[in-house]
Design a protein around this nucleic acid. Structure first.
Lengths: 253, 253
DNA sequence: CAGTGGTCTAGACCACGGT
DNA sequence: CCGTGGTCTAGACCACTGA
């Protein structure tokens, strides 16, 4: 009882630091500007570098900062809205989208994918990999599992793999009438290959969008797309979604 | 050219650790089981505690582990699917949903929210706060901004705040015919108050779902809901979404 | 090559939960 | 009260980028 503390919650240093930095970003820095390096920032705030890094990590997670090894820490632009589900049901990347097919190979999918596709667990399917580009930047890497039965007319003349093959699989898939789709979003961390495609380090936070495509009374394809969580805002529905900002959003003069 | 390294990628220790732990979780631990404490695990793997923690953090981010101060680290159950967008347009929490109104107060919304609502930047709106429960656990905290104009008949007799007020605002809102809605999902970190409602520490990763509700030709309400990213999988569309697992999903006997 | 962020160490103390 | 995870320090070295 002796002491007179109203709140008695010693706010963690990194949390306070984050707030201070966040306000500085709003008022004193322009998008793209380079911050002082971590050792200097730590010294300036009188904390260990690890503590400073904890604050920077959070700000990066919130899409406020962008850090690149060997380069520095820069102020990130607002997140880009990426349309994920539109009202009219469409096959992935059907209408002049910015999806770029990369490859297609035969592969045995993970058991849970096989179950969703209602294929045998040891049955090979077409595994199409694609990259989604926005404003010249890669924002998502996708694995699309297509059972052989969904694209029966796929010609054997085409190459067994490669981007040409990927295009052929997609072309055949688009012939089906899409009955509906089903989507889930969750947080994940980038696998090594996804990280490379997204120009991030392995383990970077990603939004994993899993989509089931229904046609002819069954699951005709299943897509697992990993979006960069730091730079993307996934939008669904009629419009483009609202941009909820953090602060005053001032720019340096 | 001298050296003969095929890959030359010295995998970070924490990354390798994460893989090892992940496999151990699949094969040797049951859901809910308590892991050895961090100091012991670090010693067992011959790394510093900070390194071990880096691996645990990632696994927690992926929803594989749950850590609670003063208690320990436990194996997390699979993420719960939480329906977010259904095909038939509905007001939030309309149909026997598990949203629990907590409070409603008049408040001046952030500028970006005011712009989306097309209200003046200094105009007060109803700010309804609710919590979403699933299986007895809080999974989301929501702030719902309702312009006065959307609920003109709101009686002044009701209390100016409190859960009764919240119910009254929602009841009036439901009288409007919903024309459409608009949704965005992005990664964020929990503010202090949200963290408390979600039984997490401040800064915990959350999925922020922003929804605009359209009625009578304008934006009738705007919802900002923060979902626990560690325990939730947001589902959209017809079905419940697919559960894509990490590994073999074995259970200890 | 110099400078950046990324990884790692071996400690210390603190806040919290249960006993 | 003890044991847990959470915070913090002051170093060291490594991997990458760009000049």
């Amino acid at each position: 009882m002796g002491t007179t503390q109203l709140e008695s919650v010693p706010e963690p240093k990194y949390w306070h630091l984050k707030t201070v930095l966040s306000e500085a970003l709003d008022s004193e820095f322009a998008v793209g500007e380079i911050l002082p390096n971590e050792r200097e920032l730590a010294a300036r705030f009188g904390v260990a570098r690890a503590t400073l890094r904890q604050a920077l990590e959070q700000l990066e997670l919130e899409g406020r900062l962008q850090r690149r090894r060997g380069v520095g820490t820069t102020v990130a632009p607002p997140r880009v809205g990426v349309a994920v589900g539109t009202e009219q049901r469409t096959w992935p990347g059907a209408s002049g989208d910015d999806w770029q097919p990369r490859d297609s190979v035969p592969a045995v999918p993970p058991a849970t994918v096989a179950d969703a596709l209602e294929t045998a667990r040891d049955e090979e399917v077409h595994l199409v990999s694609r990259t989604r580009m926005t404003h010249g930047q890669p924002v998502a890497a996708e694995l699309l599992y297509v059972p052989r039965g969904s694209v029966p007319a796929l010609s054997g003349i085409d190459a067994p793999s490669g981007t040409a093959r990927a295009r052929a699989v997609l072309r055949e898939l688009y012939r089906l009438r899409l009955d509906g789709e089903d989507r889930a979003v969750e947080l994940g961390s980038a696998r090594a290959d996804d990280a490379k495609a997204l120009d991030r380090l392995p383990g970077a936070p990603v939004l994993v969008v899993t989509t089931r495509f229904f046609a002819e009374g069954r699951t005709a394809a299943l897509s697992v797309a990993t979006y960069r969580a730091d730079t993307c805002r996934l939008t669904f529905g009629d419009g483009g979604g609202v941009e909820i900002h953090h602060g005053p959003e001032r720019q340096a003069s």
